[in-house]
Amino acid sequence: MPYVWDFSAVTRNWTVLLSGLGGTIVLSLAGIAVGILIGAGLAAMRLSGLRVLRWPATAWIEFFRNTPPLVHFFWFFYGLPMAFGITLSSFGAALAALGIQSSAFFAEVFRGGIVSVERGQWEAGRALGMSRARLFRRIILPQAARRMAAPFVERCFELVKTTTLAAALAHHELLYAAMVVVTETYRPLEVYTVVALLFLTVLFAASQVSEWLEARGRAMQGR
C-alpha cells in the first residue's frame, strides 16, 4: 500500500515551526557575530610577530577545528555548571559553543585572506612611504576582504547548519520545534521533509545570491 502524504501536521503547527525558525535565525546571527569577533582577534594574534600570542591562538584554532561541535555543545551545557557552577541556558551554551567553535574557522578565513595578498602590494605601499596602519587599511584589507568573501560565506552557512545541534540541548530552534511537532502528530516524514526543504531553500538561495554578488564584484574591476 503506497504511503499517503499528509501535510496537515505541518500546516496545523506552522506557528511552532515558525518560532523554531526564528530561534534558528537568532542563534545563527548571534553565533556569527561572536565567531567574527573572537576570530578576528585570533587572526591578529596568529599574524603577530610575537610567539606568546601566536602559540595560544594556534592551539585554540587547531583544537576547535579538530573536535566535533556536538562535544562543545555538551561541554558548555552540561560540563560547565556541574564543575564550575556556571549555569548557561540552552541558548547561552549553544551560543558559546557555536561562537567559539566557529571563531577557529573564521580566524583561518581572515588570516588566509590577508596572507594571500601578494608581497608586492606591501612593498609598493611601503615604497610610497605609507605607514603600516594605513597600508593595511587602504591596500591590504580591501583586497583581502574580497578574497575572504567566498570562504566567509561558506563558514556562515556551516554555522547555520550547526545551529541544529542545539536541538540536542532541547533549545527551541527549527529542528527541535520539528521534533516537538512530530511527537504530537506522529508525522516524521512530512515534518522533517519540510524542515529539510526550508534549510535547502534558504541556504541555496543565499548561496546563489552570494555567488552572483561575487561575480559582479569581479566584473566591476575588469577581471
Binding site: 612593498e123 612611504g129 580591501p142
Partner: peptide, 16 residues
C-alpha cells in the same frame, strides 16, 4: 620612502 620612489618589475599596482 616618500622621498625615494620605486618602480617594480611586477608593477604592483593596487588592483582594487
Amino acid at each position: 620612502r616618500t622621498r625615494v620612489g620605486m618602480v617594480f618589475q611586477q608593477f604592483n599596482l593596487f588592483p582594487h
